[in-house]
Amino acid sequence: MDPFVVLVLCLSCLLLLSIWRQSSGRGKLPPGPTPLPVIGNILQIDIKDVSKSLTNLSKIYGPVFTLYFGLERMVVLHGYEVVKEALIDLGEEFSGRGHFPLAERANRGFGIVFSNGKRWKEIRRFSLMTLRNFGMGKRSIEDRVQEEARCLVEELRKTKASPCDPTFILGCAPCNVICSIIFQKRFDYKDQQFLNLMEKLNENIRIVSTPWIQICNNFPTIIDYFPGTHNKLLKNLAFMESDILEKVKEHQESMDINNPRDFIDCFLIKMEKEKQNQQSEFTIENLVITAADLLGAGTETTSTTLRYALLLLLKHPEVTAKVQEEIERVIGRNRSPCMQDRGHMPYTDAVVHEVQRYIDLIPTSLPHAVTCDVKFRNYLIPKGTTILTSLTSVLHDNKEFPNPEMFDPRHFLDEGGNFKKSNYFMPFSAGKRICVGEGLARMELFLFLTFILQNFNLKSLIDPKDLDTTPVVNGFASVPPFYQLCFIPV
């Protein structure tokens, strides 16, 4: 058959498939802009700032609406009420993970971030239990974070109060905490193996944040037939998995079943207990991918939040002064901060919360999916439909947070200066898919920041009023603009 005829037939089939998918069930789905064949609503979305586009569309179609990214149908949730109703009140029905062709290629359905069903539930339950087990290797997770915080302070001392970009050092600290939990080992910041790991993690975040990856996920045929950065992403992930597998083999040879040292040991012990169960989800494949998931999810998000926190503290020296006064009063100079201190430091706690609220790190979270046909607000959402959640619409709700575009710790303080919780605080998402490392991340943010401010004054290279804190939105995360500062020993 003539190649031209084959091409026309293929394009015609794709067009018909697109029209059929977009028209099927439209009477039951939430409203939304009319999609174009094949490309859907992509032309109506700013790929570099999806969150802003969703906010604009919500003003037209309401808090629940339908979009098509290519052939992929998505239902968008915008605003606290619908997000709570879906992710919390109907948590089980909305607990699936959205379709990610690239991740599915890399992870093969294993791990904790992109798995679904029984596998996801069992691996998540085990990971939560293990991360909360403060007795691994007779050292609590808090001990590990405190140790890394001391190392971080010593690295900052080496800058000798000269101007520096904190990106690298602030990236090393949370990565080392995860390494300590998974591998029972922290690395020197100049260790070549550690630097290679950091390089792969950072490069992957840069790649994932590009519009090209959005295109690959919406048109998965590209993955096999086109060159691009997605190939580098898959190569980096394969490198990390190979490295983790080597460490798993080392653990198998040296493990003491009665004295687990780290996450890998705990997983291997669980595998041993379930070795007679042919349906067990505790396999080497799941261990390797879960460890890679924890490394990827637990490094860049925390380091970016820390980097943004220091920029905001530079911009608002009056806030920094209040935090340091609270540190001096509650902790002093002669001991290290600990998590028990947080309950006695409402202002510092409010500042950490406000940093996370203000920066809105992951504006749309990772997409969910419905696990069955769901009736939601008089609409029928078919099983498997991807759910896109606007966390921006919750964290920047102007009824809950007056002047949401302003950095103001009073958003989390009552009139008496006591810490005030808010149900709208969802930087880790909400419901059954809430970030498994939430507790660890909150511990790291509090301890790293208090250790830094206990030991250093922060000095800006320019007038604080002239510092730009506008986030650089890159399609996946909101990151701070480049800046330098000086760490002046107190």
Rank of each mutant, 00 (worst) to 15 (best):
S365K: 03
F134K: 14
E253W: 09
R124N: 03
G296D: 15
N455L: 01
D2S: 14
K118C: 10
V351A: 06
T348A: 06
Y347L: 05
V153A: 05
F451L: 07
S254G: 08
I284H: 08
L388R: 04
M271C: 08
Y347P: 00
E250Y: 08
P37T: 02
E405Q: 13
L388G: 00
T210D: 14
E354F: 02
I45M: 12
D262V: 00
Q278A: 11
D165A: 04
G117P: 04
K247V: 12
T301Q: 06
E246T: 13
Q214R: 13
S242I: 13
E328A: 13
Q278H: 13
D224F: 06
A309V: 05
E241P: 01
L388P: 00
R377I: 04
H251C: 02
V473M: 15
E354G: 00
T66S: 08
K315L: 04
Q276K: 12
Y225T: 10
Q252D: 05
S303C: 07
K420E: 05
V177S: 03
I331S: 02
E122A: 13
N378L: 03
P464A: 10
E104T: 15
F451Q: 10
G384V: 00
L43D: 06
L170E: 01
Q184E: 15
A369Q: 13
G296A: 11
P30D: 00
S127F: 13
R125G: 11
H411A: 02
C179P: 01
F482G: 13
A369F: 06
I434M: 15
V394Y: 02
D414K: 06
F448S: 03
V436M: 12
D468A: 15
D463T: 09
R125V: 08
N258S: 13
P3M: 15
I284S: 06
L15N: 03
G40Y: 00
Q192R: 09
R21N: 11
G384C: 05
I205V: 14
Y308C: 08
K48M: 12
K28N: 15
C164D: 03
N202M: 14
K84N: 10
C13V: 11
D262H: 02
L170S: 05
P427K: 01
L57A: 05
E81D: 14
D463L: 09
A103F: 15
